[in-house]
Design a protein around this nucleic acid. Structure first.
Lengths: 323, 323
DNA sequence: CCGACTAATGCTCACTTGGAGCAAAACCGC
DNA sequence: GCGGTTTTGCTCCAAGTGAGCATTAGTCGG
């Protein structure tokens, strides 16, 4: 068999933490400077027995804290994503594959060095945040731009196909907005040339207007993958509690879930769902700096995990009217 | 930066097809003969622009047919999975990573060569098939064996932890059986030494009794990953139709879903769910060799995909009493 | 100290969905 | 034409979901 080309494997981490009622993601500067990037570390087969061990190790080294929940996301291997990274590994001609991981950690802890910092996820995906209603930039910029992208297609068949994708991804013309489609939406915007990465990767000059803040390489796509996965996962597994402090008010928990899902929830129904699932219990202690009636502090009942039956939190349509 | 160890990347495909009311998976012989294995192909960064392109290419070459639906599963990179494969790539000392893919194709087509063949998935996971009630081997062999594995743990805390895992995975003592946990169950059986691969990997002699048919390397784990994923996916995306022929009777469709889910469904409720979702439509033609009243042939309405709103088929608790 | 304001908490109600069973209809083989 | 078998059509009830109203217990400004 012919010798295969050289391959370098890297690990990309999307690490989420709960800020002040806002989901945050850990970012750094790209190696060539300038662009925002996700933390990245080469995977060394000599010293790392598994990907996860390797990941935890360099996250500990770079940021000074221990990851809690960790889950593999996706492996990215398309050609053309290598440039700056291969150089790092001393292998300019190698193909770079990276295994993306999702990590969750309670609260945005202070970081060791100053390379890494926390950023609100919504900076990168402003069109995903519907907590205060459908964002204006969707109707004013993205939607018209996407429609004209559809019209650009030569054949009528392709035009219809483009339109269908746009319609279901962005909830146009009566279709419902599905928050889990964050990745599909990013990929569509990339194809349509509406994010800065698209022009950059084609070696073209940047478009006069682009959506959201760009990231290095395909990192924004990895981030979108993580967001989609997390949005799906909170519905059937109680992962939110990996992000909460030991004690929290129900409102705080709700704000956090809303920040992840990207839309407002109906408060009473959210609470009803919570205690049907039996996930939380009151501690008796109160949080009084609420601005109104004091809220009881609650804690996650880890035991319910073992009781097996009801896992997860049905957010599906707890949607509040506002959205 | 230090030079990194050599890495070989492979692609593993779990290709499912619908046999006669039975889900089948494409298997081959392992390279060193003897063991059943999943189709495997090295990924060549020189010629393959993306994983998916590489995958489709060698599947076409080896089996003579074109894959339809394809989805990335998971990337397996633990040390100790290399032996026979590294030799294939002419790199005995390399670390082997493989990217697992799930592929679906309608009907079990005849294959080109004779290396590959179709096998019922249930041979590898007999404990997963609850269509005719809870399998006897669960109560007679697995459950007692798992319980004594729990008792083997030295510390009482570890004993309790083991027991909890066993309980939720296998639905013991009142916990519900969750068909999506197929992977967790396999991993648990592996840890408990109840599948042949466990003894093999530790270099021990095979146990006197083991569950299901073994596969090469960690292929049975990859297959379990695919099964879990597919079982989850049919609930929220209409992927079953990737497995059906163009026209089918509703009973046939139901049998197929049951084969995937591993438990019987309530016929009337299944049909109700189907037409609530609006996925199928009658063709007017009839299938008369049913042994009873002739059934109308139906076809998948691809258009509904575009209508956006209701995706998937809620199998959740269409469970029939028998289970 | 009181009243306005703000959140937390408690409760109700209509409507949809899910689990389960019964009955009629259509075809087969004898 | 008569069981046996399978498709198909319907109904019932319990539980879950979406949405709104009312009450309670704090804070804060005057």
């Amino acid at each position: 068999m012919a010798a295969l080309g050289r391959i370098v494997v890297g690990l990309n981490a999307v690490i989420f933490a709960a800020g002040e009622a806002e989901l945050q993601v850990l970012v750094t500067e790209s190696l060539d400077g300038g662009q925002t990037a996700l933390p990245f570390g080469p995977f060394d087969p000599e010293t790392h027995r598994t990907f996860e061990i390797g990941l935890r190790e360099w996250v500990r080294g770079q940021t000074g804290f221990e990851l809690g929940y960790v889950e593999q996301l996706y492996t990215f291997g398309d050609r053309g994503r290598e440039a700056p990274v291969a150089a790092l590994a001393g292998a300019e001609d190698a193909r770079v594959i990276s295994v993306g991981y999702l990590g969750l950690t309670p609260q945005a802890r202070t970081l060791k060095g100053d390379e890494a910092r926390w950023a609100d996820w919504s900076r990168f995906f402003p069109w995903e945040d519907h907590r205060a209603g459908r964002p204006a930039m969707l109707d004013e910029f993205l939607e018209p731009a996407l429609r004209s992208w559809c019209d650009e297609a030569a054949a009528p068949g392709r035009r219809a196909a483009r339109y269908d994708r746009v319609r279901v991804c962005f909830g146009l013309d009566g279709a419902a907005w599905n928050e889990e489609r964050a990745l599909d939406r990013y990929e569509l915007l990339y194809e349509a040339g509406l994010v800065a990465e698209a022009a950059r990767d084609r070696g073209e000059p940047p478009a006069n207007q682009a959506a959201g803040e760009a990231m290095a390489s395909d990192h924004r796509r990895i981030l979108a993958t993580a967001l989609s996965r997390l949005r799906g996962k909170i519905k059937y597994r109680p992962v939110v509690f990996e992000l909460t402090p030991a004690e929290f008010t129900l409102s705080h928990l709700q704000k956090l879930v809303e920040s992840i899902a990207g839309f407002p929830l109906h408060k009473q129904n959210f609470r009803r769902a919570l205690d049907r699932a039996g996930f939380v219990e009151g501690t008796g202690r109160m949080e009084s700096r609420t601005g109104g009636r004091p809220a009881e502090l609650h804690r996650f009942k880890r035991e319910t995990l073992k009781s097996g039956s009801a896992l997860g939190l049905t957010i599906s349509r707890l949607r509040d009217a506002a959205s």
